[in-house]
Amino acid sequence: MSSSTELTEKKVFLLKSLDGVIFEVEESVAVQLEVIRELIEGDCARPFISLYNVTSEILALVIEYCKHHAETCSGGTSATIADEDLKTFDNEFMNVDENILLELCSAADYLDIKSLFELTCRTLASLIKDRTIIEVRKMFNVENDFSVVEEKAVRKEFAWAFK
């Protein structure tokens, strides 16, 4: 019965981040977060939705992403122009440091935003792809916990991949 009274006005929802910051988002943006769509449909979205795994810094970025995608898709521009626009936006949006990128990826996974999840995973893969193992370790602070002997053994096992 909740929807019938609210239909005339723009529906907004309140999202609360891990560190307690509350964001107000319109429904068109909120439903892109699959998790939230489920809560809305289950009528569990009031008074606000607590997102325990996402900091306010990341949530702000996620909302910016969803907002842009929602606006572009409903903006009435032709599909190809909208596609181009989204591509440009996505490229710029991914221009963040690696740590943020990983947090975004994890948040997109948790909030179940398929397009953002795929975008971040693809971007991470492309960062790994063009770098040597040593560079990847450095970039993501991966500690090499292999012993010298162990690492040698792995490299030997897949020698063809390291040529």
Binding site: I128, I133, R137, V142, N144, E151, F158
Partner: peptide, 11 residues
């Protein structure tokens, strides 16, 4: 090939 290479990043 790049996927296989990640095997040596860490345990």
């Amino acid at each position: 090939k790049e996927a296989v290479r990640t095997s040596v990043l860490a345990r």
